[in-house]
Amino acid sequence: MMAQIQKEDRYNLAPKKFNMWIFIFTSFMFFAALTSGFIVYVGGSKAHGINIKLPDAFMYSTGVILLSSITMFLASNAAKALDRGKQQFYLMATIFLGVAFFIIQLSAWSYMIKNGVYFSNPNASQSFIYVFTGMHLLHIFAGLLLLANTLWRSTRSIEQVKNLYSVQMSSIFWHFVDIIWIYLYVFLLLNQ
């Protein structure tokens, strides 16, 4: 009886997946708060505002992260089709694109610093760009860890249920960080 309860527990994956969805809500609230803070700050004075052209790198990084969403989608399709090899290939592609995104964002920072737009800045609207991208990069980093974990688990012979579960968890999260970046980029463009 008790062994059965434990078995139930172990495969009780739907509520755990639901946990991920709720976490996404909390994360969304976090970014909503930051962007609302930006609006309140900019509304405070005419001198406040981004007042610079956003680095082109953001455009490239947007392309890269969109691409990574596609590879992520292909990975979860492969997982559903029980094709571990293909799944691993696309997971690696996603991780590679994620790392590329990370590097491009950092290059955007260095571009901004070269042009005299510092984080520690009397115009906090410009500091906000760093906060948005920095906090988003933290999420990207978490997503990469999640993806790496999924990849590592899929190389070991775990049951399909668990494999699919872990692919789905990282896929939900990865698509979410993708969408958040698009939200932030559009938000910045509209306030440029």
Partner: peptide, 16 residues
Amino acid sequence: VLSFPVLVAGVVLLVF
């Protein structure tokens, strides 16, 4: 779940 993340945002800016 909906309100604590907003405090995090406030605190992050405060730490900066």
